[in-house]
Design a protein around this nucleic acid. Structure first.
Lengths: 256, 256
DNA sequence: CGAAAAATTGATTTTGATCAACTCCGGTGG
DNA sequence: CCACCGGAGTTGATCAAAATCAATTTTTCG
């Protein structure tokens, strides 16, 4: 197990704080707690399994830097990639509330993440109910992402799936300042895309080539450039509503 | 809008209480609150839209009796059914934290459900943090169900998908005493199954016929009988772990 | 009872999988 | 520095699972 503890940078807020603050006003007294949750970064090298299906675990992992994937291997060896875990995401939910892990999580790059024991999260419901509500809200938004994946895989064509996949990553990475208006850096393999979208590798390759030929998407040296976000969104029927949640402020204000 | 308020039966606990209590010990002081949440049942007739995509809404709905589906219509008219909402389920999560509903929810039968304003849920994080944690836990388990759907639609054959779908419903309905060891009553149409699994209607029909011919599953008069649960589970690689969550008791005890 | 919804079936087509090379590239060790 | 190795990308030929199309029958429900 890689286990080099990163020195905590006092001023840094951490990607989770950044992500949350985009749509939820965070109270002054919540910031130190959030910073503390993200302070115990451990190092995991590329290709390492953070969570192994079938084994039990008692921690969540707040990703600080780097990328991982959550996946399952079926009995016939097929793999399905459930999602990519980006900086600011919390790895281990859902699936944490089971005797043993339902899915595996493996790093795609060298990665720093802060492990947080379950008990600490549960405890937060008592000590910081408002912050707990905000995390609850955040998980609900994540569930909306999975729902969109389900629709994409269930009822969309290969081209639409690939387009959605890339546009979603663009939007999610923008939320943590890891993407500019139209491009981002990620070590995506075509195998990974295929396993996330329920497609075969050669067909993903074919779809990507056609997107490249149409000057819509270019992937080179691990940099994904979406040359025309509007055109691609229209082509694949992408609505980013599900990634732009309502500010929870109104609801909280009614209570506070 | 149907809006006949059901008289509250003082002794009844409600399906949500029943479902939760299967894997979470509920404290004595939480029971009245849970009962109260489920007490304001409204009636919705079959085929009615409880939540309409694109419209805003400010309530969740605890289903007391009857069944509904959550779905999305795509621009080309295709429909994808995200899940079935059974008694004891809370309709409206996820998707509630957005400006407008991301999905529609329509009843499949006459249905009674108790609307609960968001503010009341949020408020519970302050007044009953432990119960809030339990609801949070419950939503996380639901997220595991969607993850399994995603795997099924992404990487399983049509036969496996249908088998999983029926076995999952059996297990979920058993948790609220609406199924016996091997059968349950539900108004499933083949169109509904097709739209939930990303298949075409004729193909679903073909798969169901082959299951019937093999004496594994029989659907007649809205009663689904799984003639050999073990054999079907083995055939379609169904593991019910994801529906049997860890009791949260240990985690809560560490705190209380 | 009658209309509409749902189920069933078969013929045909399509999307995307599978199979099989082959290439390109980056790292690594001699 | 270069040969080599393995992973990833690319391509084309062929195949198959499942979609689509088109009736026809059965069931359900008002």
């Amino acid at each position: 197990m890689g286990s080099v503890v990163l020195p905590a940078r006092p001023g840094a807020t951490g990607p989770l704080t950044q992500k949350l603050s985009q749509s939820i006003p965070l109270a002054a007294n919540e910031l130190p707690l959030l910073r503390d949750l993200q302070s115990g970064s451990q190092f995991y090298r590329r290709g390492q399994e953070i969570i192994v299906e079938g084994r039990s675990y008692r921690k969540l992992f707040i990703v600080m830097q780097g990328v991982a994937m959550r996946y399952r291997i079926l009995r016939d060896g097929r793999r399905h990639v459930l999602n990519l875990v980006l900086p600011g995401d919390i790895a281990g939910v859902p699936g944490c509330f089971f005797e043993s892990a339902l899915y595996s999580i493996r790093t795609l790059t060298d990665l720093w993440a802060s492990p947080v024991p379950f008990a600490r999260i549960i405890n937060m419901f008592h000590t910081h109910p408002q912050l707990a509500a905000k995390l609850f809200w955040s998980f609900s938004c994540e569930a909306a992402i999975y729902a969109e994946h389900l629709i994409a895989v269930g009822r969309r064509t290969a081209l639409e799936r690939v387009g959605h996949f890339l546009l979603e990553l663009l939007t999610r990475l923008q939320a943590v300042k890891l993407a500019d208006e139209r491009s981002f850096y990620l070590p995506l393999t075509q195998e990974l895309i295929a396993d996330a979208l329920g497609l075969s590798i050669p067909y993903v390759n074919q779809v990507l080539r056609s997107l490249r030929d149409d000057n819509l998407v270019c992937i080179k040296d691990k940099v994904v450039v979406i040359r025309d976000v509007e055109a691609l969104s229209a082509l694949v029927d992408f609505e980013r509503n599900y990634l732009k949640p309502l500010s929870i402020a109104d609801l909280l204000n009614e209570v506070a």
